[in-house]
Design a protein around this nucleic acid. Structure first.
Length: 503
RNA sequence: GGUAUCGUGGCCGAGUGGUUAGGCACAGGUCUGCAAAACCUGCUACAGCGGUUCGAAUCCGCUCGAUACCUCCA
């Protein structure tokens, strides 16, 4: 597809409305997404965010953009409430080297992303691998007068930045600096070093016992949490780039501070479009480890949790996520997942049937039937949905409507001649493109492995049953069907022979 | 307390000034040796109260409720 064929609109948190996407460089798109902090197993909410951005990445690709997708790994600089580095804390608890902790959970994170069938980003930079770049950015900020040093730590001067660049700080999160100050908590250790409570650290001097430390012109220490994204997005995407994404909860302070840092360092705005995904809820509440209202991806897959009656496969969970728009909160409930499971399986089966359909032999007379038009409309709706801020719910709804045509053709309820061969071909192509390339829903029946053997066995069994049926030997026929049902395979007798599905 | 977002039918969840979202569930029907699936039909809503408008679920105000953020967060 050519990038100019369609108008893509995306909801920009910066402007608070849907903006038409106009890339900085024709045909190219640069996207930075805040990645995980690798101090613990990936959280389900992370999965939703990264699945959402994977769809965005894939759709930009499908539209013909050459996309550079950068998603970082945060392996330093994240302070916990008591001021200790998250990585170091994880290491102390597990008696591991910090980098061992980072490696372990990075691998776990990658495995989970693969399970959800997401594409790896183009570049996946680590914070610890970009200490010089971060130090350089601190220097840039200092030289432009927006930072100050206190006892070896360097702070960003929010008040001064706001005074000299009015309207920037707070624009993304809709905050007013004065109110922030009034409400600001005072529980950070370094608070007394700051000129102003709204200021934040861009370089922290190490305290005794800190193990993840580097030399800098100011002290032996470590970079502030917000700094890595500013430094790495600049390095790989340039000072100004197209899209910046992340979870809604990063809007403030992280993204707000990130913008301030970039502006402070180069005097220019970083991303032009800011995209934020919404939270995943469990039974109406935000997931939280402390009050027990949480479920891990693995628990969800295995069903080993009081919140679900059974396990739901990764693709069912992904389908469930895609049924909602990425900017809406999504509530995980057992009933909703069960509904998603049925919907997912039906969609997969529909695609299998569709791909095996052969166009009618009749010559095309050039006319466009009502069915042709309806199918073409449905295809257009699916794309329009994606063009409208990546509305996967609309895309899935269109696929569902298109699916009924597939079954009608397969069941001969719609005369094959009613659908022009080229329309059927287009439907096959688009349907598959949506499922495989854009929404990236794997057919778990295919992915189960060893399908060759199973196919062969099923072929044989169904042949025997077909013979029994032609002889009206219903006893044998039903015995086979019931036996297969007992191992989870359902047999369906159609006009064109018998098909089967698992599960 | 401040800020933001949201409140849609039995459930989930799109839409956002005038026309069917979709899925799941449910009820009838068609097809079928029976069944399942599929297809058809039905059920059918926009928290409450005011206002703007020829017309509002959609815009505005208030009330109630929910969720999130307010320097740990995807």
């Amino acid at each position: 597809m050519n990038t100019s064929d369609r108008t893509l609109k995306l909801y920009n948190s910066l402007t608070g409305k849907k903006d038409v996407f106009q890339p900085l460089h024709e045909g190219h798109a640069g996207m930075y997404v805040c990645g995980p902090t690798v101090y613990y197993d990936v959280h389900l909410g992370n999965c939703r965010t990264f699945v959402s951005f994977d769809i965005i990445y894939r759709y930009l690709n499908a539209l013909g953009y050459q996309v550079r997708y950068v998603r970082n790994i945060t392996d330093v600089g994240h302070l916990t409430d008591d001021g200790e580095d998250r990585m170091a804390k994880g290491a102390r608890v597990a008696q591991l080297e910090p980098m061992e902790v980072a490696q372990k959970y990075t691998v776990g994170f990658h495995d989970m992303m693969r399970i959800f069938n997401t594409l790896p980003p183009s570049i996946e930079p680590r914070a610890t691998g970009h200490i010089p770049e971060q130090i350089e950015m601190v220097q840039d900020i200092l030289s432009r007068g927006y930072g100050y040093e206190r006892n070896g730590s360097v702070y960003f001067n929010v008040r001064k930045f706001d005074r000299e660049n009015p309207g920037i700080y707070g624009q993304l999160s809709g905050r007013v600096l004065d109110e922030l100050m009034a409400e600001s908590r005072d529980n950070l250790k370094s608070q007394d070093e700051k000129n102003d409570p709204a200021d934040f650290a861009i370089w922290m001097k190490a305290r005794p016992g800190d193990i993840m430390v580097w030399k800098s012109p100011w002290s032996v220490g470590f970079p502030g949490w917000h700094l890595e994204c500013s430094a790495m997005s600049t390095k790989y995407l340039g000072q100004t780039f197209d899209i910046h994404g992340g979870g809604n909860d990063l809007k403030f302070p992280h993204h707000e501070n990130e913008i301030a840092q970039n502006q402070g360092a180069c005097g220019c705005a970083p991303a032009r479009y800011w995209l934020h995904t919404n939270m995943l809820l469990l039974n109406g509440k935000k997931m939280s480890k402390s009050d027990g209202n949480t479920i891990t991806p693995v628990e969800l897959f295995t069903g080993d949790s009081p919140f679900v009656s059974k396990g739901y496969s990764p693709m069912v969970v992904k389908f469930f996520m895609l049924m909602a728009h990425y900017r809406s909160t999504l509530d995980i409930t057992d009933e909703a997942l069960a509904a998603a499971e049925k919907g997912y399986r039906k969609l997969m089966e529909t695609n299998r049937i569709l791909q095996s359909l052969r166009p009618a032999d009749q010559p095309y007379d050039g006319s466009e039937s009502a069915a042709d038009r309806a199918i073409l409309d449905g295809i257009d709706t699916a794309f329009s949905g994606m063009d409208d801020d990546f509305n996967t719910a609309i895309a899935l709804a269109s696929l569902s409507e298109l699916g009924s045509f597939v079954h009608k053709i397969a069941n001969k309820q719609l005369d094959a001649g009613e659908v022009s061969p080229w329309v059927l071909e287009r439907l096959k192509t688009v349907f598959n493109a949506f499922i495989v390339d854009i929404l990236a829903l794997q057919d778990e029946l295919d992915a189960a492995g060893d399908t060759g053997t199973v196919e062969g066995l099923m072929q044989l069994i169904l042949d025997i049953r077909a013979n029994a049926r032609t002889q009206k030997d219903w006893g044998t026929s039903d015995k086979i069907r019931d036996g297969l049902a007992a191992v989870g395979i359902s047999v369906k007798d159609g006009k064109e022979g018998t098909s089967w599905t698992k599960g």
